[in-house]
Amino acid sequence: MSGGFTKSMARNIFYGGSVFFILVFLALTFDTGKALPERDKREIINEQVALGKIVWEENNCIGCHTLLGEGAYFAPELGNVYKRFGNSTEAIKAFIASRPKEGVPGRRSMPQFNLSEEELEAVAQFLKYASEIDTADWPPNIQG
């Protein structure tokens, strides 16, 4: 680099630039926090939905599926599965409950998680809640 540009100038850009953009990021985070209640449908979250999120996590569903596009890419997107299954929590429950224990020969299959009725209902309600979040119109279509 040319002689006019010194190491201390470079150092100041690093420290100054970093601090400045950390502050911008925190300001945007603060603003996002204020805007979220309009979009994240927090009023839907009840004890059942919260339990559903625990069931979702403790069975590592994200290890195969995406949820709002994040996760693994081995199995279908579930952020809109409630809508894809005809706005039916019963259909979601039936699907999870009916997975064959030994899988399907030669094909991908969801494991049988042996969920209780309470857990099934909770995870279905959690997925229903996820489908209500305002995701700026993502995914592009019902296939996820």
């Binding site: 603003d31 996002t32 979220l36 979009r39 709002l68 994040e70 995701t135 700026a136 993502w138 995914p139």
Partner: peptide, 9 residues
């Protein structure tokens, strides 16, 4: 990462 997860547009 904040395009489609419910965060402001």
């Amino acid at each position: 990462h904040y395009y489609w997860i419910g965060t402001p547009e």
